[in-house]
Amino acid sequence: MSKAQLTFSDIDVTVTVPAGVRVIEISEKVGSGIVYGCREGDCGTCLMQVLEGWNNLSSPSVLEDKILRELMAGKHYRLACQAQVLGDVVVKPA
């Protein structure tokens, strides 16, 4: 199984994860400041900034894209409950 490095820059923690996990599955366990509301891509609470490795996350679904547009989020912002880690990324709370 391929591995990737997921770094939370707000707490200086890097976790080696199997490719495909969602950020939500890791961030709460290590205590990153990314916080969650509905946990299903509808409320936008878990907006995070992707500092490095933008292309190493799964593409936003139509629904996630809609929420990101409603939040007027910039290009390098994603929902942590939706984004899957496919390669090395560095993220922090928005």
Partner: peptide, 12 residues
Amino acid sequence: KQAVRELDFSQI
């Protein structure tokens, strides 16, 4: 003051 940490998936 906590040092930079590197963890494996299995540790969390």
